[in-house]
Structures are given as C-alpha cells and as structure tokens.
Nucleic acid binder design. Structure first.
Length: 660
DNA sequence: GTTCTAGAAC
DNA sequence: GTTCTAGAAC
C-alpha cells in the first residue's frame, strides 16, 4: 500500500517563497551549514557566474543537482503560482517538493533590503522599497493543491528558526510529514469569498476509480472524471468535488488538471489535491465532509491502497456501518455509508459519510477482468462516477434539507450482488517501477498497455510461482505430485512439517481465500477431498501423523492453495514467528470451516495478518515460549491433547483412535 | 515466499 | 561473545 512512505530516501526540492529581504538566502545557508543531507542552493541572483540568471537556468541546475543525489533549495522569490509551477514539476516518485513561505512583514523585508550591503542580487538602497512592494502585489500564497508535499509558513523570526531547525535536522534518510504547517487564517484576498465559507461547503474527496490496481487507461479515465464532474457540478449547488491522489507526480491528477483547464469549469469547485485522503483536513488543511472509497466487491477492509487506508483510519465503525447498508457491491455501483460521530474519521477530519465505489477491472490478475474491452469498461466507469456523485448529491441534499430526491437509486440492495475484486494487500504488489518488468516464463503475466507503456502486473515474481504451476503443471513435472482438470498437488517447496503438501486450484483469478464465493463451492470440496486422500496416504505410511487442512487468511503467494500439513511441525524450514503463527493461530482457516462459511454466507471469513505477529504458543497445550528454538524444543516433546476446538468437526485428522 | 544481515537480546 | 529477530531486498 501505497499509503506509506516506507521506501528509500527521498530527495527534496524546497521552494523558498518570499520577497527580497525575507531571509531566503540566510535560511538556505543556515540549513546547509549544519545539515547532514547533501543540499544544493540554487539562487537565481548569482546563477550566471555570480550574476543574475534566468528561471530556465535555475531549472536546469536543479535537475542536475537532483541527478547528483542532492536535495535542492530554490532560492528565488517564487511569489506566484505561475512562477512556482515549473519547479513543482521536478517532483516525482523519488522527489518531494516542499515550500517554505517567508511571510514576514513588507516593512521588515524592505528595511533589510535597504540596509544590506553586498547582497548578491544587488538590490540595495532606496530602490528596494519600490521593488518589494511591487512584487508583493502579485503574491499568491502557496497551496498544497499546486502539488506541494509540504508547506511551512513563517511569520516571524521564531517561525523561521523553527523551519530552519526542521530542515537542518533532516538526515539523508529522514522524511517530513506531508501537509500545511503554521498557516494563519488564510488570506481572504487571494481566495475570493464564495457563497458560504469553505468551512461549511459540502466537499467530496475522491480517488481516481479503477486506475490503480485495476489498471484502467489513464487518458480514458481522466476524460470520464472531467466529463462527470462537469455534468454534476451544476446540480451540486455550492458543493465541491476534489480528486485526490497521494503522489505528487500523479499522472491522473495532471491529466485531469489539464483537461479541466480547457473547459469552463469553476476551479474552486472542482480541483485536484495531493494528500492522504484520510488526512486532508488535519494534514492538508482542506475542509471536506464526504470521501469516496475505491472499495472491493465484498466491502471489506484490507487489500492495499485507498481501501485499506480508509478502513484503517475509520476503525471498526466503518465496517459495522457498511454492513447495515450492503454486503457486496457490483462494478459501476456505489453505496453511501454514514459514519457515526464516534468514528475517528468523523472526529478528526469531519468526515460524515464514506461512499464505497467499485469500478471496472482491467487487470488480468483480478477477477472479472474486462480483457481490454474499453467499450464496456468506459460504460462501467461512467456508471461508477454517476453513482458516486449521485450518492454525494443525496448527502448534500440531506445536509441542506433541500427537497429530497425520490430515492437513493445508487444504493444497491444488500445481499446478492455479484462479485468484483479490488486492490490487494500490498505485499502482492511488485515493484511499481515499469523498468522492473517481470520475466517469468509464463506468458500469463504479460502487461497490458497503458499510454503506450508497459506497466508492471503488480505481483512480485516470487509470489507467482504457484500460479505458474497451477496453470502449467506439465512444465513442472519435478514438483507436481498429481494433477487433474481442476487441481494440482505439489510438495511445499519449504515444508513446515514432516508432511506438507499444497492442493492448488487451477482456476484463473482465484488468488486466495478472499476471492472465494459460492460458485467455487464444488472446487473447494474437491480440493478438500483430494487433501483427505493425501492425508490417508501419508497416514498409511506413518500412523503417528496428524493433519490439518486449511488456508492462510492472507496468502503470500498467488493462487488459492490448500495446505495439507502434519502437526509435528518438525522442519528446518519453519524458522520464524510468521511461519509458526500462520499454521497455528486463527490465521489458518480450516477447510471444513471455509466450506461451511461459503455455503452459509457466500464467502469465507479471513483475519488480519496482525495475528502473525502474536506470541508464540504451543499448538497443543497453548503454553507460550520466548523464541522459535525454545518453542520447537517444547513442541518436539509436547503430548498434550489438542485444544477442544480442533477436536471438533474433523478439523484435526488423526488415524482412527489416536489423538495423542 | 526466502535470504541476508544489522543490531537487539541475552 | 553468541543467539535470535525483524526488516529490506529479491
């Protein structure tokens, strides 16, 4: 996911913003004197062999410095949006663009400029006052939606010192939180007052639907976003629509921005914004009250990206509130979920509603892949935005007590919608970098085309091994024990017990337990039966072996696979807590229970990966142990009876009359 | 999923 | 000093 800054070190471009005399150069010099991060100060006043140069010269030098691995100060006035925009474009996946706005009083700046001697820009003497005043006339305060990752406002020397310290302390590997810091009540001059203050205008923040994990073409998606926004803005009164993306170099944001600017759309009511959709108020200073979630068809937490982030930020309240409204969602549909006032998102950010939306899927590794059928895909994406914006409209109308529309046509009946898939846990996501394309032998992971560029499939190569075997067992004769039309049985390459085999499903798009639905019941039963057959075979050889059949809640490897594993756990490959807990905590879902759940509720329950981090307990006597070696020592000799739970419903498979 | 390794724990 | 874990890289 996506919503974390976990990667390697990022370079930073800091735009200093302030008139002559505001202390930009001093700021840079002070930071650079004590910083452990390599910095380059790019000062337009001296860039030309000590004389004043041009903006393009500054840009070129900035690019060169970034290539050398340095972070960069842009030491020029940068007072208006236009002046800043070129430098903001320096941002990307590895480069954050920050702003430090030196908002000292004009008088201070003027008097400093007048007094100073030897200033590099040679702006001294009486002429300075006129220049500073002129410049300040065109000043526009920086805003996050220009594309800044972070903005700090400084109004006095103490603020400046604080900002200097912040950047001085920033080591090469450190990062700073995103958002807008220190801003006093925003200047009303530069933000023409609209009907109703921005603090009360209903605002929907929404991610681009289907363009992340579902790999929908960005050009087409941006057309649809702009088209639908244009269509709904007139119906929405003063309400605002804000397209949000986490990344500064976001292609979809720049496409939408470009397309919006060509149309007659009020940029105060439809605009793009960079930030974490769950923190736009606290970290980005944006007022908003409704967010859209790029949901999965089960309307469940987890996965990666926006869905995981929203459920995480909202806590269990969201899932409970969602359940009341619907259990599943069809592509092209949405469902409006009011958040209780106890919900953290409500309290911290002022979000009153989450609208779950499901878009079309163009990712061949996700269920209901549309196989590049963009006729259908565009239709579904249009429906998705229509449904989303209508949902928002219904919230707005409720909110303003306007006459209500007849009904919420966008809210699907709860219950029996057909499935669609979503973003998955981030560990499934391989390198997002297109250059690191996978080179598996299987042709099935070939990328789709996205604006003419091949994009990566989102699965790390190591996670595809089972899928590859399931699809082409004949190519893997050395590891395959048995195969039939629907299943393949293999030895686990790193067995975690004396006997440990996997029964793989051979169906495409069944990546794990989360994908399983009623349609798969027969397959689940077949996998179970094949598992039982292998248990019998093993027990015929060694009657002391006891088995469990089950699935990992969140598998590491693609392709639904049933573990058939003996309960001795004697194996050198069982090395860590994750290994142990994945087979002995409730993270391991017994096949009998999975089948029962799918029969009764149409889907299998899964639990969070957090369970894997829990303490190490013996699977028989439940005693706790400090580390893996001590645990294994204990397990080797523990003969306690298994917990009651496992003795029921044939969860545990022992040969007749042996449970000990 | 595993391997590798820094550094925490002992 | 050695053992063990946990996180990054693959």
């Amino acid at each position: 996911m996506e919503l974390e800054n976990s990667e390697k070190a990022k370079q930073i471009v800091v735009l200093l913003i302030g008139p002559p005399g505001s202390g930009k150069s001093t700021f840079c010099d002070t930071v650079m004197r004590s910083s452990h991060r390599p910095w380059s100060r790019i000062c337009q006043d001296i860039i030309n062999n000590g004389k004043a140069g041009t903006k393009p010269q500054c840009l070129k030098m900035a690019i060169d410095s970034l290539k050398e691995g340095k972070s960069v100060f842009i030491d020029r006035c940068n007072l208006d949006r236009e002046q800043r925009s070129e430098f903001i474009k320096l941002g990307g996946s590895d480069v954050e663009v920050h702003a430090v706005a030196l908002e000292l009083s004009a008088q201070v700046c003027i008097s400093r400029s007048v007094k100073r001697t030897g200033h590099e820009g040679n702006l001294q003497g009486g002429r300075a006052a006129a220049v500073v005043n002129k410049m300040l006339q065109s000043k526009e305060l920086p805003k996050l939606n220009e594309g800044f990752f972070r903005i700090m406002f400084c109004y006095n020397d103490a603020d400046v010192e604080n900002a200097v310290n912040t950047y001085s302390m920033l080591g090469p590997m450190d990062t700073l939180p995103a958002g807008c810091f220190g801003q006093k009540n925003s200047d009303t001059k530069s933000q023409p007052a609209k009907l109703g203050s921005a603090d009360t205008v209903p605002t929907l923040a929404f991610p681009s639907i289907s363009t992340a994990d579902f790999q929908f073409d960005l050009e087409k998606a941006s057309d649809i976003i702009v088209e639908k926004a244009e269509e709904f803005l007139p119906k929405l009164g003063t309400a605002r629509l804000v397209l949000v993306d986490l990344s500064h170099g976001s292609k979809i944001l720049s496409l939408v921005k470009a397309k919006t600017s060509q149309k007659n759309i009020d940029s105060a009511r439809f605009f793009t914004f960079v930030g974490d959709i769950t923190k736009l108020h606290s970290e980005g200073g944006l007022h908003y009250n409704v967010i859209a979630n790029a949901a999965n068809w089960r309307l469940k937490p987890g996965g990666g990206g926006v869905n995981a982030a929203i459920y995480k930020a909202a806590g269990p309240d969201l899932e409970a509130a969602t359940r009341v409204r619907a259990n599943t969602l069809l592509p092209g549909k949405s469902v409006v979920v009011p958040l209780p006032s106890t919900c953290p998102l409500h309290k911290a950010e002022g979000i009153t509603h989450v609208i779950h939306v499901l878009g079309p899927n163009m990712n061949p590794n996700r269920p209901d892949y549309l196989n590049n059928d963009y006729t259908k895909g565009c239709k579904t994406l249009r429906e998705a935005y229509t449904s989303l914006f209508e949902g928002f409209l219904s919230v707005v109308q409720d909110h303003s007590k306007l006459p209500k529309r007849s009904n919420q046509t966008t809210v699907p009946d709860s219950g029996d919608n057909i499935k669609e898939d979503t973003e998955r846990n981030k560990k499934f996501k391989g390198p997002q970098d297109k250059s690191v394309a996978n080179n598996l032998e299987s042709g099935s992971v070939e990328g789709t085309r996205d604006n003419g560029k091949k994009i990566s499939k989102g699965w790390s190569t190591w996670a595809l091994a089972l899928h590859s075997i399931a699809m082409h067992p004949e190519r893997h004769e050395n590891v395959v024990l048995e195969f039939a039309s629907n299943i393949v049985v293999i030895n686990d390459q790193y067995p975690k017990a004396q006997k440990h085999v996997l029964v793989l499903a051979r169906q495409e798009s069944l990546d794990g337990l989360e994908d399983v639905c009623r349609e798969n019941l027969q397959l689940l039963q077949e996998m179970h039966d094949v598992g039982l057959k292998w248990v019998k075979r093993f027990q015929d050889e060694d009657a002391s072996l006891i088995f469990r059949l089950g699935y990992h809640s969140v598998p590491s490897m693609r392709q639904l696979h049933l573990h058939v594993i003996s309960q001795d756990f004697e194996s050198d490959s069982l090395k860590n807590k994750k290994h142990w807990n994945s087979f002995t905590s409730s993270f391991f879902r017994d096949s009998v229970d999975v089948i029962e759940e799918v029969k009764s509720q149409g889907m299998a329950n899964v639990v969070s990966e957090d369970l894997l981090k829990g303490e190490l307990r013996c699977h028989r006597c439940r005693s706790a142990h400090p580390n893996i070696p001590k645990l294994k020592l204990h397990v080797r000799s523990c003969r306690s009876q298994f917990p009651d739970h496992l003795l029921q419903n044939n969860r545990l498979l022992a040969p007749p009359q042996t449970y000990q």
